[in-house]
Simulated assay, not measured.
Amino acid sequence: MKNSVLIIAFISIMATSCCNNRPQEDFIRTQDAIENIMSRKSVRKYLPKPVEEEKVQILLKAGMAAPSGKDVRPWEFVVVTERSLLDTLAEALPYAKMLRQAPLAIVVCGDTAKSSYWYLDCSAAAENILLAAEALKLGAVWTAAYPYDDRMAVVKKETGLPENILPLCVIPVGYPAIPHSPKNKYDETKIHKNRWR
C-alpha cells in the first residue's frame, strides 16, 4: 500500500512538473491538425476587439516553425497595430480593404540577401500563420504584395522596410465578425497517379 501511494505521488509530481515546463501556447485548446487544415478559411470581416499579445506571439512562432531551404529562414515579420497605418495600407492596397476593420496585420517579408527563393520559404511561414489563426479561433486572410511592384512599393514605404527586405503578403488578423465556412476544394481531377493523364 505504501509503495502504491509513493508511485501515485511520483506520477502526480512528474505530471505537474511536465505541465509547468510546457510552452504557454500548449494551454490554449486547439483542434486536431487535419481538422484545422480542413477548417481554414479566408476571413475579411472582424469584430472591434484587439487580439491578445500572447496569441500574436503564437502566430509569429507558428510562422517561424515553417520549413526553410537549407534552414536559412529568410523571413522577417512586421506586426502592424497602429490604426492610421492599417488605414493607409487599406487605402493603397486594392485587395486589402478589410484592414480598415482589422485590429492588426502581419506583414510577411523575405530577406533577398539571404535567399533568392525567399518567397517560397515565406509562403510556408504565411500559411503557418493562417493555420495558427484558425486554431486560435481568429480570422485571417492572405493579401498579396509580391510579385506586384506597386503593392510592394506601398508596403515597403509605409512600413520602412530596408532595401533587401521584400514584402510577400499582408495578413489582416482579428476576431471574425460573422460566421464563415470553409470551401470544399477537393478535386479528384487534380490527382494524377504515376503519369499525367
Rank of each mutant, 00 (worst) to 15 (best):
Y148R: 14
Y148N: 11
Y148P: 00
D149N: 14
D149W: 12
D149C: 07
D149K: 15
D149R: 12
D149A: 14
D150P: 00
D150S: 11
D150C: 02
D150N: 10
R151Y: 06
R151P: 07
M152G: 01
M152Q: 09
M152W: 15
M152N: 02
A153W: 14
A153D: 02
A153C: 09
V154R: 02
V155F: 11
V155M: 06
V155R: 03
V155A: 05
V155Y: 05
V155T: 04
V155Q: 01
V155N: 01
K156C: 08
K156W: 06
K156L: 07
K157P: 02
K157F: 10
K157G: 05
E158D: 13
E158Y: 15
E158C: 12
T159N: 10
T159I: 04
G160R: 09
G160C: 10
L161G: 07
P162C: 04
P162W: 13
P162D: 03
P162S: 04
E163W: 14
E163L: 13
E163I: 08
N164T: 14
N164Q: 14
N164L: 08
N164F: 15
N164M: 11
N164W: 15
I165W: 05
L166N: 06
L166S: 08
L166V: 09
L166Y: 14
L166W: 15
P167C: 11
P167H: 07
P167E: 04
P167S: 08
L168F: 05
L168T: 05
L168S: 07
L168A: 08
L168V: 07
C169L: 03
C169N: 11
C169I: 06
V170G: 06
V170S: 03
I171G: 04
I171Y: 02
I171N: 03
P172Q: 01
V173I: 15
V173R: 00
V173F: 00
G174N: 01
G174T: 02
G174A: 05
G174M: 01
G174S: 04
G174W: 00
Y175C: 00
Y175N: 00
Y175H: 02
Y175F: 06
Y175L: 00
P176M: 11
A177H: 02
A177N: 10
I178Q: 09
I178P: 00
I178E: 15
I178C: 02
P179A: 07
P179F: 06
P179T: 01
P179M: 12
P179R: 02
P179K: 03
P179N: 03
H180K: 09
H180I: 13
H180S: 12
H180M: 10
S181L: 15
S181D: 01
S181Y: 07
S181N: 08
P182F: 13
P182G: 03
P182W: 09
K183I: 10
K183S: 10
K183L: 12
N184D: 15
N184I: 10
N184Y: 09
K185A: 13
K185T: 15
K185F: 08
K185N: 13
Y186V: 04
Y186I: 09
Y186W: 10
D187E: 12
D187C: 13
D187H: 12
D187P: 09
D187L: 11
E188F: 04
E188D: 06
E188K: 10
T189A: 12
T189P: 02
K190V: 00
K190E: 01
K190C: 03
